[in-house]
């Protein structure tokens, strides 16, 4: 077991990483530790089941293939014990059916190995900061206002004409201000695609959206994070 340092500026959460590959487990612990979370690492399913039933964790990162008790059975047992801690399943099994199986077992998200550590960190953040109030119908960030009921977006009082997909994309970003949203997350959640197109389609779509909402300002409301994704960052 190892706990990383807490950084003072973010809300620290308790994350349990269940992964038997020690190198990968250590890297995950470090990157999540950098994000300000207290990370506990365990290498086998049975110990992890006891630990996660006994202690209150905010999130579990669970590998599917584990000694003792496999990852999916671990999640199923937890759900049977009425433990509803969000679970991010990581697995080398990337087939679509496997992903569906992972989510059915009670996982909240499924990430296929090999993955970028930033991708993992972004997904962990997304699970930890799930949009709380889904009844909110108006988002207002600086000059930008989105009304979910009238399906309109305005900047400085002027209507912005968005295609349905662009609206969905912007809504997804505005619900997660300041949070890194990866391309894979957008494909999965906005487009609901299970595959990754070869070209940088997402960047092109974001670029188009940016041109519509930024209105020629110097700094964009949607900031690109090199090689990873985007952050909606209101001024």
């Amino acid at each position: 077991m190892q706990a990383s340092q807490r950084s003072p500026d973010t809300v620290s959460k308790r994350v349990l990483v269940v992964e038997d590959d020690e190198t990968l487990a250590a890297e995950i612990a470090l990157v999540l530790g950098d994000g300000g979370h207290a990370v506990t690492s365990l290498g086998d399913g049975r110990t992890a089941l006891e630990a996660s039933s006994a202690e209150p964790f905010d999130l579990l990162v669970v590998d599917r293939m584990l000694p003792g008790l496999d990852g999916l059975s671990l999640v199923e047992h937890l759900r049977e014990r009425q433990v509803h801690t969000p679970v991010l399943v990581i697995s080398a099994l990337g087939a679509v059916d496997e992903r569906v199986r992972g989510l059915k077992a009670g996982g909240d998200d499924y990430l296929t190995k090999p993955f970028a550590l930033v991708e993992l960190a972004a997904r962990v953040e997304a699970l930890l900061r799930r949009p709380q109030d889904t009844r909110q119908t108006v988002f207002r960030f600086g000059p930008l206002v989105m009304d979910l009921v009238s399906r309109t977006v305005m900047r400085d009082g002027a209507d912005i004409d968005l295609l349905p997909r662009e609206f969905q994309l912007l809504e997804y970003l505005m619900r997660r201000p300041g949070q890194l949203v990866t391309r894979a997350m957008l494909l999965q959640d906005v487009w609901q695609y299970r595959f990754v197109p070869k070209t940088n389609l997402i960047d092109v779509h974001i670029g188009k959206l940016r041109r519509k909402i930024d209105a020629g300002g110097d700094t964009s409301l949607i900031v690109s994070v090199r090689g990873t994704g985007f952050v909606f960052s209101p001024p």
Partner: peptide, 10 residues
Amino acid sequence: ADLYAPLAEE
């Protein structure tokens, strides 16, 4: 077509 329209345009 919607998915590729922006790329084609670009």
